Amino acid sequence: MKQKISLITTGGTIASKETKDGMLASGALSGEELASLCQLPKEIDVKIVDLLQIPSMFMDFTTMVQLKQAIEEELKDPTVTGIVVTHGTDSLEETAYFLDITLADERPIIVTGSQRSLQHVSTDVPSNLRNSILAAANRSLQNIGVAVVFNERIYSAKYVKKVHASNLQGFATFGYGYLGIIDNDTVSVYQKPVHQEHFEIKEAIPRVDIIKCYTGADGTFIEAAVAQGARGIILEGAGRGQVTPSMVEAIQKALDQGIIVVITTSAEEGQVYPAYDYEGSAHDLQQRGVILGTDYDSKKARIKLAVALSSGIKLKDKKLF
């Protein structure tokens, strides 16, 4: 039986070419050029959708919504087995999670990229793309949500992070492991997410800013976010979710103005938890009305809060994190 995969390209290193001065021009390769590298089995057909040709740090909510709509258009075809999205690695984890919480379809949706260009002697372009297409064509990835395939491993969109700037092993999921592997064209899935969330975007996605906490930090950046019209603020705190006492006054003022504030942790593993009782602790912040961000990193928390706000849900009536 033929498997039909829609390959949607957005640019990034995976589609880059070297310029005369040795730099990389992102998005220079077409989807047809990329697909031709994969030497796919005869039972897999690939439809190309060249959507964007941008570096990944050009991604924003507008382009993410554009990508979401393109995927939804492809999924209208009941003969489509799965979707593969090629993407730059620098913001890949954010786009993958955005798609994970805004798309609801049992068919596999895979996001991939590469750390090195096609011209590089140790390029990972053909292997990552081929493995992603094989994964998207495999029934074992149904109802798994959006996944990231990279360096023969399958990752959950919720927890995947870019962990190395250039190494081929560029992504990982600290504390949770990967969902499965692709080894010699065999797709093996060992675990699946037990809880999935989906939000319907009903309004323009609002501004949500991330503010990192560090010793001696004050409320300057919180005040700036408020002044720029942020409807939400993600605090990346320390440990169990602590901030400096010098930040608390600005946090309280933001809360008083109806801005949603979420506290996350900069630690790679573990959760925000109200363990201490002092000014700026997770307990103190929670008592003031700050939402505890459990085990979300700040980038994923920002995506979730922004999408949730655009869906129109009343955050006080629903546990969000």
Rank of each mutant, 00 (worst) to 15 (best):
M64V: 01
L37Q: 09
Q228K: 05
K17N: 03
E72H: 02
I71A: 07
N151A: 08
L92N: 05
K314M: 05
S36F: 02
Q115S: 15
V148F: 06
Y276I: 05
E106K: 14
K47S: 12
S56V: 03
D90K: 05
R153H: 04
V149I: 12
A301Y: 04
L34P: 00
K202H: 11
T220F: 03
I259F: 04
P55G: 13
K318F: 13
G27W: 05
I260K: 10
V80C: 12
D256K: 13
G270H: 02
P206R: 15
M247W: 06
R231M: 14
M23N: 13
V208E: 07
Q66Y: 13
F321D: 04
N128L: 12
S36A: 15
I44Y: 08
V146R: 12
R231L: 14
G82C: 01
E269C: 14
V149M: 08
P78Y: 06
V49I: 07
P55M: 09
V261D: 00
S188A: 08
T63N: 05
T9H: 04
H283S: 15
A225G: 02
E249P: 02
K304E: 03
H87C: 12
E106R: 14
I83L: 11
S246T: 07
G170T: 14
F61C: 08
Q69N: 15
R130N: 06
K68E: 03
S30A: 02
T89R: 10
S266V: 04
R302M: 15
A267N: 13
P41D: 03
E33H: 13
G82R: 06
R107K: 15
F150K: 00
V125C: 13
A25C: 09
E279Y: 05
A217R: 10
D284A: 12
Y176C: 13
I251K: 02
Q271N: 05
V49Y: 07
G22L: 12
S122H: 15
K2W: 11
T264E: 06
E106C: 09
A96L: 15
D90R: 03
T102G: 07
I181P: 00
I210K: 11
Q286F: 01
P126N: 10
D185N: 14
N167P: 02
A254S: 05
E73W: 04
A25H: 11
I260F: 07
R288P: 00
K202T: 03
D297C: 15
G27V: 08
D21H: 02
L255I: 03
K20E: 07
Y296F: 15
F171L: 11
D45C: 02
I44E: 01
T102S: 03
P126C: 13
D90E: 12
L285Y: 00
Q39Y: 09
Q119K: 06
L37F: 05
I154L: 10
L40A: 06
K161L: 14
Y155V: 12
I259T: 04
P78I: 07
T63V: 06
L141I: 00
G31R: 11
G237C: 01
Y155M: 11
V149A: 03
N131H: 03
I48Q: 01
L75R: 04
E152M: 02
K192N: 02
L40Q: 12
D77L: 01
N184T: 09
S30P: 09
G229Q: 07
V65L: 11
S26K: 10
D50E: 01
